[in-house]
Design a protein around this nucleic acid. Structure first.
Length: 260
DNA sequence: ATGCCCGGTGCTACCGGA
């Protein structure tokens, strides 16, 4: 089963690029972030026509997450637990039933947090605490589970072309990276770095200042696997060529192939 | 060079993104 996470930066603006990608790459499951649409206005037809089941969790104007799946989706849950007052649509999870295994899939859009310090950064760190609580519950279940999406976290210096430019940024501040490591260290496998080391591997390039042309990127889209999911992993890769397409998102898909 | 571009809102300029 091939699963991709992809921050699409607006579903309505990305219909053409997204459907072209689906037709060429043919993911079994796509975890989408930043749909920027309420559920009622989500353009379902292009996806349902291609055989995808579709579950959305959107809001007006910003944020929003969705799951596309050619396999059945069960037990869908919307919103990250831990704060009933949180109105931001950044979390949806469901169980995908494969031919051999069922996997719990969590699609997340972690807050940006800039400017830092400040209330937006406090919200980011609070959200990461709630994420850790959900992560602990997933581990306790001892089942295959994947938490994937736009983490808005640059884990290490090698995950940025110019790490020195990010030292004060909410994506790279020490507290951000420590919170990410605390979750990882519970026992998750970060899928991409389990297979590929070294410099120059990014998942986001700013629209400004020719960042793509200079490969001035950062790696902020991640898949975290429970041990039971890590045992099923066959491969993980970043589809960076999508960034050079027509009217692209500023992020690209990150893929996992899993025996399920 | 946190300005450079982009999407959404809703109407033309601003917010949020990263």
């Amino acid at each position: 089963m091939k699963i991709a996470t992809f921050n699409i930066n607006g579903v309505k603006a990305r219909i053409e690029a997204l459907t072209t990608w689906l037709d060429e790459a043919n993911p079994d499951v796509a975890l989408l972030q930043e749909i920027k649409s309420i559920d009622e206005n989500f353009p379902r037809e292009p996806f349902e026509d291609r055989g995808y089941n579709l579950e959305t969790h959107g809001q007006k104007g910003f944020n929003g997450v969705a799951i596309l799946s050619k396999f059945p989706l069960e037990d869908v849950s919307r919103g990250l637990p831990g704060d009933d007052s949180d109105e931001q649509a950044r979390w949806i999870e469901a169980t995908v039933v494969g031919d051999e295994k069922a996997i719990r899939l969590c699609c997340l859009y972690l807050p940006n947090g800039n400017p830092a310090p400040g209330p937006k950064y406090d919200y980011k760190l609070d959200w990461m605490k709630r994420l850790q609580t959900r992560a602990e519950a997933l581990l306790a279940a001892e089942e295959p589970a994947i938490m994937a999406g736009d983490y808005n976290v640059i884990p290490q210096a090698e995950d940025a072309k110019r790490p020195e430019a990010w030292t004060e940024d909410a994506l790279y501040r020490p507290e951000t990276r420590a919170a990410f490591r605390r979750i990882l260290n519970l026992g998750f496998t970060e899928a991409f770095r389990a297979r590929t080391q070294g410099l120059g591997h990014y998942s986001f390039w700013d629209y400004q200042a020719g960042a793509w042309d200079r490969n001035d990127g950062i790696r902020i889209d991640h898949l975290l696997l429970t041990p039971q999911a890590a045992d099923l992993m066959q491969d993980c890769w970043i589809e960076s060529a999508v960034r050079g397409g027509t009217k692209p998102s500023d992020h690209v898909p990150v893929w996992i192939d899993i025996a399920a």
